[in-house]
């Protein structure tokens, strides 16, 4: 396979691509009633919901990293990454943590779900063309990354080597098992780890940041996409710095409390940026320019 790359490609900076420019049609706060057509149990507290409009179409066509505001009618709405899309569906993986996510977990296939979006910017898919990509995820943090992994796999020749390094607390807590154990190992390099040894697990044991350093990925022409719990991000970033990566080449996604999703309600600001509109995708060097309120 031809591997584009080299100096010209490396010179392109993977800055997060701009949020929406032109005004959108219609009422941006009004959800569309859609249907859950498939539910997959990922872990004891994460389920993946495949969603379609009532007349069998894709609710919208998101770019990798974009968001969907999902609602359980009469309960509430919250923001989730769109982790995958198909011809006529989108998917989000949802961890049960509170009121709304509990209600969503109570849905069955065929039930209705409110959807609005797509929101936010997206991974800089063009700026990282020709680069080697290293995806680092922890726990449910693989959800936003998965949309980009799928995108890159569909356009395999546009990108260099692909490595997925993913970890969770335990085997049970690993999400997207069919992807990480079956689909992806066939087409890219996968490195899976769990925090503590288990009898049925013969893979790597240890935390994501130390596994990352152990693997000694070269920073040469490589972009890292890093998503997971804040503490994991912090330690992984320290590891990556030691390994010689620059912050410009480390991309992450942020989470803030959100209500409107369209830059109006004021809730998700970090300084003058709104994560729902200007994010959720930022490079680590862009984050350095924002106030420390993440």
């Amino acid at each position: 396979m031809a591997r584009p790359g080299g100096a010209a490609a490396a010179a392109k900076r993977p800055v997060a691509e701009a949020g929406p420019g032109a005004a959108r049609e219609g009422n941006p706060l009004l959800p569309a009633m859609c249907r859950v057509i498939k539910i997959t149990d990922e872990t004891p507290d994460v389920k993946t919901f495949r969603i379609q409009t009532a007349d069998g179409a894709k609710p919208f066509d998101p770019m990798p990293g974009q968001l969907a505001m999902l609602s359980a009618m009469g309960v509430g709405e919250a923001m989730f990454s769109v982790t995958a899309k198909g011809e006529d569906w989108i998917e989000s993986s949802i961890k049960r943590v509170g009121l709304l996510t509990e209600a969503l977990h109570g849905l069955s296939e065929g039930d209705m779900i409110g959807v609005r979006g797509p929101y936010g910017n997206h991974f800089p898919v063009d700026a990282i063309k020709g680069r080697d990509l290293l995806f680092v995820g922890g726990g449910i943090g693989l959800a936003p990354v998965r949309s980009l992994i799928r995108y890159a796999l569909e356009r395999r020749e546009d990108y260099g080597s692909l490595d997925v390094l993913y970890g969770s607390r335990s085997y049970d807590d690993l999400v997207f098992k069919s992807d990480i154990f079956e689909n992806w190992p066939a087409v890219c390099n996968t490195h899976i780890t769990i925090d503590n040894a288990e009898e049925r697990w013969d893979g790597h044991v240890g935390f994501v940041p130390s596994y990352l350093e152990e693997k000694a990925f070269s920073p040469e022409n490589r972009v890292v996409v890093l998503c997971g719990p804040p503490i994991m991000i912090k330690f992984c970033l320290e590891s990556l710095m030691r390994m010689g990566f620059s912050k410009e080449n480390v991309i992450t996604t942020l989470e803030m409390r959100m209500k409107c999703g369209v830059g109006k309600c004021g809730r998700c600001n970090i300084g003058s940026k709104y994560v729902c509109l200007d994010g959720p995708v930022f490079t680590m060097s862009e984050l350095d320019g924002l106030p420390d309120e993440k």
Partner: peptide, 12 residues
Amino acid sequence: HAFLEKGYVDSY
């Protein structure tokens, strides 16, 4: 500025 600019227009 807040309700009508930056990509989305608040319908209400």
